[in-house]
Design a protein around this nucleic acid. Structure first.
Lengths: 200, 200
DNA sequence: ATACCTTTGTGAACTATTTCACAAGCAACG
DNA sequence: CGTTGCTTGTGAAATAGTTCACAAAGGTAT
């Protein structure tokens, strides 16, 4: 989050930013900003604030964005399409090296640079390309089986959009995004509407 | 999360579930399950566990899913399409009452039940339909202006997929999902790979 | 009815996170 | 070159969240 706002500031040519300013941008507190950043090192200058450009570079390094990550997208539905199109990924060093689907209607279609391939070739491709990150955007009922295949093929991190419980072994990282659950969270907030509004 | 797994158990006809079983399903601990549920009431029977069917009903009520929520989707791109298609929403009581876009190519297209309308009519429609939830899936640079319009029109909760900082007044709930940030989290986990794998 | 087994609900202990508050450091200015 | 005005970095205090552990129930079997 800090990285995102620091990039904006950097693009505007602002040389430094105080914890107070960053806190305001990120919707947190100055003390929080300082504690968070101090966990990784001592980046600021007292009396001045944090050097915007240098700090963005540091954070990128910390996040592991100094390299290119190969990503495969599984599922050429609407969500797969949205992700394949999303220019933000490449900017951040995530290169989509393959899109997969198991519907013969879709296999062979060209999306930009890439041609949709059959899921049966996925495991070999992952191994060959040494892709480490996979985005799963397929129906919930197929998700666990596919994830198991991905893990066996050497995938190390999975971003899951399938609305299903998915389990991975300890050496694999997993993040799940479930749209229905997000809406239910909003429903709860509306129902118990003493809530103070969140910003982000 | 509990609701999701309880629904599965209920569909399987399982009459009760212990905190231990729920914890296992949800990837948490029995004590956590008991504390969480006890916050809202005393639903279990000692020696037996929690009554699956009754507890799903309770949780649905707690989450405010006992009613129908009207939802508008703004942005008829890939993400908007994915959400409009998603059957899970209706099942959970979220009815999409309108899809909006400001591109004249898209306005007038029919998507299932709904015809894409021009964003200029959005505010009036929201007021008229009394929609309280909006999903924002438009380019980042237009997001804040649109959100301001939505808030002025009476929207009370926003699920934001636009990759941009968005602020809302205190009486409005906001959740943002940022795909690039999710991937960056995975990149961090991979880079500092002592991480224990997460399940969810 | 009683003994026994299971599992909840919940204070208390523990752990983690956030906030406070201030000494130390740096820049700017006269 | 000292003085002034900011702002960091960080221990300590406060708050929040999780886990422990056990008394109180409820069920079951005899």
């Amino acid at each position: 989050m800090y990285l995102r706002y620091l990039e904006d500031l950097d693009a505007n040519g602002q040389p430094t930013a105080s914890s107070d300013e960053l806190a305001h941008l990120c919707g947190t507190t100055p003390a929080q900003v300082r504690k968070d950043l101090s966990f990784f090192g001592s980046f600021g200058k007292r009396g001045l604030g944090y050097p915007v450009h240098a700090l963005t570079a540091h954070l990128r390094e910390i996040l592991g964005l100094g390299r290119e990550w190969k990503v495969v997208i599984v599922g050429a539905g609407k969500i797969g399409a949205a992700l394949a199109n999303y220019r933000g990924f490449l900017q951040r060093g995530f290169r989509v090296v393959g899109i997969y689907d198991n519907s013969s209607d879709k296999v062979g279609q060209r999306w930009g640079e890439l041609v949709i391939r059959d899921t049966s070739t996925l495991a070999d491709d992952v191994r060959h390309e040494e892709a480490l990150i996979a985005v799963v955007a397929i129906p919930g009922e197929d998700a666990q089986a596919l994830v198991d295949t991905l893990v066996a093929a050497g995938i190390r991190a999975i971003l899951n959009f399938a609305p299903a419980k998915v389990t991975v072994p300890a050496h694999v990282s997993l993040k799940s995004v479930n749209m229905a659950m997000e809406l239910e969270g909003l429903s709860f907030a509306l129902t118990h509407a003493t809530t103070t509004g969140t910003s982000a």
